[in-house]
């Protein structure tokens, strides 16, 4: 009963917005092409996914392929960012000499917005997957790196003392103490990073790639198909939400030991 009423609570606001939007679009206050009604968007989206009546024209039935090519770029760029960001972050947080030699350079690169790399990315990698993967990497790398460094630096020194008293080598300290201690912070970086990853895939696809959800979005804009633009926006939002939810599931599995000891754990 309470679970049901709770899920109902969640649905109230979106349902209200959708209904108001539908009414407003059908009222003829604006030309229907400028703000397509939700029912129209849903119809076009359906055709884009299942290809039943070609309302989405050339895109009919191609949604899965588009979504997959976007998701592949996110996965590749994000994967590289996770591995390099976590490893480098641990090294910078742990060894002073790495911090002194490497960190200043990274800190200078960090304020440069990833999108401003687009021209160079296209020159270096051409129009294909690579520039998009490069941008996704740039977007996800820095939040993951910064949060990992923070996590390592705020690891409890006493745990390190306790472990070295039990004979831990430096490598074992990193693996068995510093890494798990930094994990809550690393996960915070992973969640910020996945948002940036989707943002940059779509941006890259608008400019530097000829496939994917971002490409369909931008292409439909040229052809004045705002119903497709909205369907693409909704698709990106949905996939972004799904990947974030996946990371949250991984996080609560990896950080189950925090259960009951942090504010965050109240949610679960």
């Amino acid at each position: 009963m309470t679970a049901l009423s709770k899920s109902w609570e969640r649905a109230v606001v979106p349902l209200f917005i959708l209904a108001a939007w539908e009414v407003f679009s059908r009222s003829g206050f604006l030309p229907a092409a400028l703000l397509p009604a939700p029912s129209v968007v849903l119809h076009t989206w359906g055709d884009w996914i299942f290809g039943f009546d070609e309302t989405s024209q050339g895109n009919t039935g191609r949604w899965l392929a588009d979504a997959l090519s976007s998701a592949t770029r996110v996965a590749a760029g994000y994967g590289i960012a996770v591995v390099s960001g976590v490893l480098l972050g641990i090294a910078i947080g742990w060894w002073r000499w790495v911090e002194r030699t490497v960190e200043p350079t990274l800190q200078m690169l960090r304020p440069v917005p990833p999108v401003s790399w687009i021209p160079l990315a296209i020159i270096w990698f051409g129009i294909a997957n690579k520039p998009a993967i490069f941008l996704v990497f740039l977007g996800a790398f820095f939040p993951i790196l910064m949060n990992t460094i923070h996590g390592v630096k705020t690891a409890d020194r006493n745990l390190i003392r306790a472990a070295s008293m039990m004979g831990a080598t430096e490598q074992q300290l990193l693996r068995h103490v510093v890494f798990p201690a930094a994990l809550p912070s690393i996960f915070a970086g992973l969640r910020i990073g996945i948002g940036a990853a989707w943002m940059l895939t779509v941006t890259a696809e608008m400019v530097a790639v000829k496939s994917g959800l971002g490409y369909v979005l931008w292409d439909s804009y040229y052809f004045l198909r705002y119903d497709l633009v909205l369907a693409a926006m909704a698709s990106i939002g949905l996939l972004g939400y799904a990947t974030d939810a996946l990371i949250k599931v991984l996080m609560s599995a990896a950080l189950h030991w925090q259960h009951g000891s942090t504010l965050q754990s109240r949610e679960g």
């Binding site: 006493n158 003392r161 472990a163 030991w257």
Partner: peptide, 11 residues
């Protein structure tokens, strides 16, 4: 060694 705080690995 036993410390003033137990210093257990919370995970």
């Amino acid at each position: 060694m036993v410390f003033q705080q137990a210093n257990l690995m919370p995970w």
